[in-house]
Amino acid sequence: MSNSKRSVSLSLIGAAACLVALGAIAQTAGITFRNTITGEVLNFDDALPEGKDTAGVKEFMTSGKNPYNEDASCLKLGEQLFLSACSGCHGHLAEGKIGPGLNDAYWTYPQNETDEGLFSTIYGGGQASMGPQYQNLTLDEMLKVMAWIRHLFKEAPEKASWLTDAQRKSFKPYAGHETLPDSPPGKCQEKAK
């Protein structure tokens, strides 16, 4: 077998092992990610191979809480991903256009109030034009998009159930356009370089 074929084979084996591990981690923690519409268990075998084994994804799969929420180092990346992948339907500030608004306390799918629910909708899709995004965004990118969506929330922090108590104390409803720093310290800083 040539070195390039062996490398591809090893990469595929590594990706498959990562998927099995993610599924096992999520099940061990008691988290079962389900399709928002059908309720079927989501199949992470379909996800893009990159971005599955980041520390953020591993933490999310065990806790169901997005570790990138309110992490300034992840917001600029999340904003860029949201603008390219989501804003066409949900608006530049998640105010809603073809798709529903995502920056207030009303959720078309009430489970999206939780990080686990919002991730499941992004990954597996919703109704109408909201198709599954697992072939457009990596799992890690989905978490960054979610952090940006949560950042755009314009209502009182008490209505932001996804925030920790500490985050809720410092949370300020989104007031409008802002300039984000290029590389503040945080969980996503190394990925931004």
Results as ranks from 00 to 15, higher is better:
Glu178His: 09
Ala166Asn: 04
Lys65Asn: 14
Ile37Pro: 03
Leu12Ser: 11
Ser7Lys: 11
Cys18Met: 13
Ile13Val: 05
Asn136Ala: 15
Ala128Gln: 14
Gly88His: 01
Ile122Phe: 04
Ser73Trp: 04
Ala160Pro: 08
Cys188Val: 04
Ala105Met: 09
Glu116Cys: 15
Leu163Cys: 05
Lys169Met: 11
Tyr134Arg: 12
Leu81Arg: 07
Leu19Phe: 12
Ala16Leu: 10
Pro173Thr: 00
Ala128Ser: 10
Gly78Ile: 03
His151Met: 08
Tyr109Met: 01
Ile98Ser: 10
Asp115Lys: 01
Asp45Val: 13
Thr114Arg: 05
Gly96Leu: 07
Gly96Lys: 07
Lys58Trp: 13
Cys74Pro: 02
Trp148Gly: 02
Gly23Ile: 06
Tyr109Val: 15
Ile37Gly: 03
Asp140His: 03
Ala16Lys: 10
Lys154Asp: 12
Lys191Trp: 14
Gln111Lys: 13
Met130Pro: 07
Leu42Glu: 07
Leu19Ser: 15
Phe119His: 06
Gly99Pro: 01
Asp115Pro: 06
Glu116Ala: 13
Leu19Glu: 13
Ala128Asn: 13
Leu102Phe: 06
Ala94Pro: 01
Ala16Gly: 14
Gly91Pro: 04
Ala16Asn: 10
Trp162Pro: 02
Lys65Ala: 10
Arg168Trp: 00
Leu10Tyr: 00
Cys18Val: 15
Phe60Lys: 00
Glu155Gln: 10
Ser73Gln: 07
Leu137His: 04
Glu95Trp: 05
Pro184Cys: 12
Ala17Leu: 12
Lys5Cys: 15
Met1His: 09
Thr62Cys: 05
Lys193Pro: 00
Ile25Ser: 09
Glu79Asp: 10
Ser2Ala: 03
Leu81Asp: 07
Leu10Cys: 03
Trp162Met: 12
Gln127Met: 12
Pro100Arg: 14
Pro184Val: 03
Gly39Glu: 11
Glu116His: 07
Glu79Ile: 08
Trp148Thr: 03
Glu190Trp: 15
Gly186Cys: 02
Gly39Ser: 07
Gln167Met: 06
Pro49Ser: 04
Pro173Trp: 00
Ser2Tyr: 10
Ala26Trp: 08
Pro100Asp: 12
Lys144Ile: 04
Asn69Tyr: 03
Thr121Arg: 13
Trp107Val: 14
Leu10Gln: 12
Met1Pro: 09
Leu19Thr: 11
Asn136Ile: 14
Leu10Asn: 13
Gly91Tyr: 05
Met142Leu: 09
Phe153Gly: 03
Gln111Gly: 04
Gln80Asn: 14
Ala72Phe: 03
Phe33His: 06
Ser9Arg: 15
Gln189His: 12
Lys159Arg: 11
Trp107Lys: 10
Ala166Phe: 04
Asp115Ile: 05
Phe82Met: 01
Asp46Pro: 03
Ala55Gln: 11
Pro67Ala: 00
Glu113Met: 13
Asn112Ser: 13
Met1Leu: 15
Phe33Asn: 03
Thr138Gly: 01
Asp165Val: 06
His92Gln: 15
Leu118Phe: 06
Asn112Leu: 00
Glu95Ala: 11
Leu77Asn: 12
Lys159Asn: 04
Gly99Phe: 02
Thr36Trp: 06
Lys159Ile: 00
Ser161Gly: 08
Asn3Leu: 08
Ile122Trp: 08
Ala192Pro: 02
Gln167Asn: 07
Ala15Val: 10
Ala160Gly: 03
Ala26Arg: 08
Gln127Lys: 11
Tyr109Leu: 02
Trp107Ala: 14
Thr138Tyr: 07
Gly125Ser: 08
